[in-house]
Design a protein around this nucleic acid. Structure first.
Ligand SMILES: [Mg+2]
Length: 389
DNA sequence: ACCACATGCAA
DNA sequence: TATTGCATGTGGT
């Protein structure tokens, strides 16, 4: 299945990317000049060392994480000087231009007119796929400027469409299944808004009283728990004091006591066996689980918590992929599976085949594995990936 | 040519 | 001091 995805490749609109490139180029040039002006020196803005000299030595801004100029540091320096904001804008546009807008057209194959990534099957520690040359699993979506790039991922034929289907909250559902936590399993079975339900319980209010900010908090906490985040990281993510983050996590574990139980029993299993496993039996060794080094031991714990969840999710979508592939062949359909992005599958399909494809994809994704919680799949279609997802 | 590191994109 | 990846650029060997 992966070979077929690689051979078929993705059509990418070169002209659209070229237009974006000159547009981005002008903005980057003007930002660069502005940064030179504001700093009083012409230097390489891409050099973190040179930028640190300007910000911390020349302008005397406070060092927050040693001499790091990373995004979260520049965000905190925003109010003190205009330069950090300009550098952030420069970095955003430069990243998109260099990594995607200018790089992708170079990779268009002369014979096929399409881009052929490699989907690595045996690379990751958890059983996920990875994608390289180019990486099709990190195409931008978070900012509007980046999201525009997805308009270039389109069908080459006006009579064909892009179809995308993605699992909804798949890792949380798998955590519910693996832990058998009663409240989490119940919530999913009732089909309620899981983040709002979490917020109601953690903040001890009724579901109608959940404010959007409470829901956002619950979403971040739900997410963080999948990775074993502690109070420090949670406080950073939420922008609250560490003490508040700590009591938030405690309230969470009180709501979902089965999750705490799952984490503990996963630890015991890992210590006993020095590996952890997915639902279907993939093993990951975790030698550092009893390391004498505290940092190594804690890191191993987080990997042991996350691997069964991330790995089981990977198994589910891989089963769906082989099943969908076989159906498409059996029904002599023309649609092609093109991309896999961990919980999402992207296809191209003749317009008159779309409804049939959608029925197959949703059925196979939803029923790939049988868990104690329902599986939900969202989908969409359009001229490009931008509209489809 | 190769490497470590910083940075930042995705799920 | 939250998991899994890959690409780019700098600064160095
Ligand atoms: Mg999703």
């Amino acid at each position: 299945v992966l070979l077929e995805m690689e051979f078929k490749g993705m059509y990418v609109d070169e002209q659209l990317l070229n237009e974006m490139s000159s547009d981005f180029g002008k903005k980057i040039d003007s930002l660069t000049k502005g940064i030179y002006n504001e700093s009083g020196f012409e230097f390489n803005v891409n050099s973190t060392q040179q930028l640190a000299k300007i910000l911390f030595d020349v302008k005397g801004l406070p060092e927050i994480k040693k001499r790091s100029t990373a995004e979260d540091v520049l965000e905190q320096l925003k109010g003190k000087h205009i330069l950090p904001e300009m550098v952030l804008e420069f970095r955003k546009l430069n990243k998109l231009k260099n990594t995607y807008i200018d790089a992708l057209p170079e990779l268009i194959n002369q014979s096929s007119g399409r881009i052929h990534s490699t989907f690595n099957q045996a690379m990751t520690a958890t059983g996920r796929l990875s994608s390289s040359n180019p990486n099709f699993q990190n195409i931008p979506i978070k900012t509007q400027e980046g999201r525009e790039i997805r308009k270039a991922f389109r069908s080459s034929d006006p009579n064909w469409l892009i179809f995308s289907a993605d699992y909804s909250q798949i890792e949380l559902r798998i955590m519910a299944h693996l832990s058998q936590d009663e409240a989490l399993v119940d919530a999913f079975n009732k089909g309620v808004d899981i983040h709002a339900t979490t917020a109601a319980s953690v903040f001890n209010v009724s579901i109608d009283e959940v404010e959007p900010s409470m829901r956002r908090t619950a979403k971040i906490v739900n997410f963080g728990l999948l990775y074993g985040a502690g109070p420090f990281r949670m406080s950073q993510e939420l922008g609250i004091p560490q003490k508040e983050a700590k009591s938030l996590i405690e309230a969470y574990f009180a709501t979902y006591a089965g999750i705490k139980n799952y984490v503990d029993s996963m630890m015991d299993f890992a210590k006993e066996n020095r590996f952890v496993t997915t639902l279907l039996g993939r093993k990951r060794p975790v030698w550092d689980i009893d390391s004498s080094n505290h940092l190594h031991r804690e890191a191993a714990k987080r990997m042991a918590i996350n691997m069964p969840i991330q790995g089981t999710s990977a198994e589910m979508i891989k089963l769906a992929m082989t099943s969908i592939y076989e159906s498409i062949i059996e029904k002599k359909m023309e649609s092609n599976m093109l991309l896999q992005i961990h919980d999402e599958l992207v296809f191209e399909s003749p317009k008159d085949e779309l409804n049939e494809l959608k029925d197959i994809v949703l059925d196979k994704m939803i029923n790939a594995m049988s868990l104690s919680v329902p599986i939900e799949v969202d989908s969409g279609h359009g001229q490009s990936w931008y509209e489809a997802h």
